[in-house]
Design a protein around this nucleic acid. Sequence first.
DNA 1: AATAAATTACCCTCTTTAGGGGATTGATAG
DNA 2: CTATCAATCCCCTAAAGAGGGTAATTTATT
Lengths: 226, 226
Amino acid sequence: MKPTASTVRTDKASPVTTIRVAIVEDDEKIRNAYVQILEYAEGLECVGAFESCEAALKQLDDLLPDVILMDIQLPGMSGIEGVKQIKEFHPSIEIIMFTIYDDDENIFRSLCAGASGYLLKSSQPEDIIRAFRQIRSGAPMSASIARQVLNLVRQQSPISPDQFQLTDRENEILRCLVDGLSDKRIADKLFISPQTVHSHIKNIYEKLQVHSKSEAVSKALRSKLF
Amino acid sequence: MKPTASTVRTDKASPVTTIRVAIVEDDEKIRNAYVQILEYAEGLECVGAFESCEAALKQLDDLLPDVILMDIQLPGMSGIEGVKQIKEFHPSIEIIMFTIYDDDENIFRSLCAGASGYLLKSSQPEDIIRAFRQIRSGAPMSASIARQVLNLVRQQSPISPDQFQLTDRENEILRCLVDGLSDKRIADKLFISPQTVHSHIKNIYEKLQVHSKSEAVSKALRSKLF
DNA sequence: AATAAATTACCCTCTTTAGGGGATTGATAG
DNA sequence: CTATCAATCCCCTAAAGAGGGTAATTTATT
C-alpha cells in the first residue's frame, strides 16, 4: 500500500469534488445544527438528514451520499445495526459514528459493523468537518477513541510463545492436539510410537496444569499459543 | 473515560510545558534533519538522538524524554524490540514509530509492543510535530495506517454465533467442553445424566463435523464461538 | 391434531485416554 | 566426568470417550 497524506492534516486539501454528506440523528436540534454546519463548510454538501436508519435506508439509492454521520442511540434500528445494513447494500459509503458512547463495546461493534470513523458528540464542529475530509484516506476518530482502538488491537495477542516452557517436541505435539489428532495419528505423523506421544502429552499436561486433551487445547488456544 | 479534544486537532493546544523528545534513527542525515525540525518547533525540545535502541536505553534514565520517535529497521535491536524494552522500564514514555514499513505485521507488532503512534517516513514535518502534541490524548498515525488498524480490529471477531445451528443446550455443553469439563462434570453442572451429556456431544460432533472433544474445542474457539 | 424439533435417558461395545510406574539414548552444561 | 534434560520406548490399570442403537418426554409449529 502506498502511503498518502497523513491523518494529521488533510484539512488543507482542497476537494476537487464536493463531498456529499448525510446525517442520521434523532434529536432534531442536533440534527439541524449539523445540517447548518455542513452547509457552511466548504466542499461539503448535506444531501439528507434523517431521524432513523429506516428512513435513511429508503432514500440512499436516490441521495447517494459519500459519507454518513451516524448516531448510535436511535429509535428503532440502532446506529450499529444501521451501519451493517447500509454497508451491505452500499459498501462504498463511508460511515462516521457520532455518539456520546465511548465504551469499548460500542466502539468495537461499530468498527466491526463497518464504520470507518468514530467521533464523540463533544467534538468541535471543525473536527467533524475535518473528519469528513479525511475519511477517504484515513480513519478519523476522537483522541480518546483512538487510544481505545489501540487497546483493542493490543488485546488481540499479547503473544508469549514460551510461557509454559514447553520443549520443541511438546509444542509440536500440542499443535497436533489442537488439530484434533489422536495419539495414534500423532505417532504416525511424527514417526514415533504412540507411547512416546503419550509420554509427551503427560508432560504437556503437567506444564499446562490440565488433565485432558480438550483442556489442553482450550488453554493453548486461549493463551494464543497458536 | 472523559472525552477530551479530538485527534483531528490538537495542534492549537499551547503546551504548558515543553515536550521532551528523543529520536532513535540509524540514518545520520534523517536523524539530524529531525533534530533540526524539533529544535525549531515551538513547545518541543529534542533531548537526545541515537542511532540504536541500545544507545538510547543507556541514557533514558538521565534524559527522561516524554516521547520517543522510533525507527523500526535498526542495527542491533529492532525498533519493535526496543519499544518493548523501553516500555518495560519506562512505561510512561510514549513512543511513536517512524518507518517506511506499512504492513500489518509491523503495525500490529509495534502497537502490541507498546507504541502509541505510527507515522510513515513520507509524513510531512508538520504532521510529525503535530503527532508529538497529540500523543498524550490520542494515537497519532498516518492515514493509511489508521485504516489498517481498523482492519486489525475488525479481524478480531466477525462473530457468527449460529453458523453450526447448535441448539441452546448444545451450545451450553460445547461451552463446557471448551472449559475442559468431562462428561460427568458437565452432567453434574447441568443436573442431567452423563448419558444425556453424551447424547448431546454426539449431536454436537455431527454438526461440527468432528470426532473428538479436542477437535470440537478447537473448532469452537477457532470459529470464535466463545 | 399432527408433526417436528429439542431434550432427556438408556442400552451396548470397542477404543482411547489419563495417570502411575520405569528405562534407554544422546546432547548439553557445569 | 557427571548431572540434567529432552526424547524415545515400554509396562500397567481404571476411567473416559466415541459411536451405534432406541425411545420417552416436552415444546413449538403447522
